[in-house]
Amino acid sequence: ELTQEQKDRLQFVMDSYSKNRIPQDIATKLVLQDENNTDENFVFLTDMATSHVQVLVEFTKKLPGFQTLDHEDQIALLKGSAVEAMFLRSAELFNRKLLEWNTDLLEERIRNSGISNDYINPMFNFYKSVGELKMTKEEYAVLTAVVILTPDRQYIKDKESVEKLQEPFLDILEKLCKIHHPKNPQQFARLLGRLTELRTFSHHHTEMLLSWRVN
């Protein structure tokens, strides 16, 4: 069972995670724009990525202890985790059908945005492999906190302080896995395994943006 302190922490993070939404005007754009050309999809995806980052920063600011970190370390954590958190959030949106809009339409726009299939196919494979874990909303939220508070990001000066902030979330995540997936003792290890996969996306994302810009 979670301790009372862990329950309070989880509740606090869930409240903030629930507000973690892409603004309606961007969502509306997806539905209203009939024209489906590469340039428009490019602008659409960059707008959506920007919103993703802004929403992520708002979520991060409320993580207990984050605001006590050195300001440049705060930026280094966010820079190091933004892409991973974005892919994790996308995986959640696709798998839990959180989008009020059709995910098929979104997939079509992503596939028709000038990004090479070499990058897109592994991304949709990742969504599928995350989907197989049948994660709950709590697990997504806490895993996102774990991703953001990763102490070994580049340029972090005070790794120890970050570690101290991440640990309580790892403990909660381990318990949640046991509570929600009693028949699957490997759940916690599998979730952490997905983080390794996420890291490769961070690397691919940089290459992908470069090739996209050239095109």
């Binding site: 602008v43 960059t46 920007t50 980052v53 802004q54 920063v57 708002e58 705060q74 930026i75 820079k79």
Partner: peptide, 21 residues
């Protein structure tokens, strides 16, 4: 436009609560 801002700019502005761009 936001699409011309780099990731770090977006993060710095958002940390300060500045969403004008």
């Amino acid at each position: 436009p936001a699409s011309n801002l780099g990731l770090e700019d977006i993060i710095r502005k958002a940390l300060m609560g500045n969403y004008d761009d």
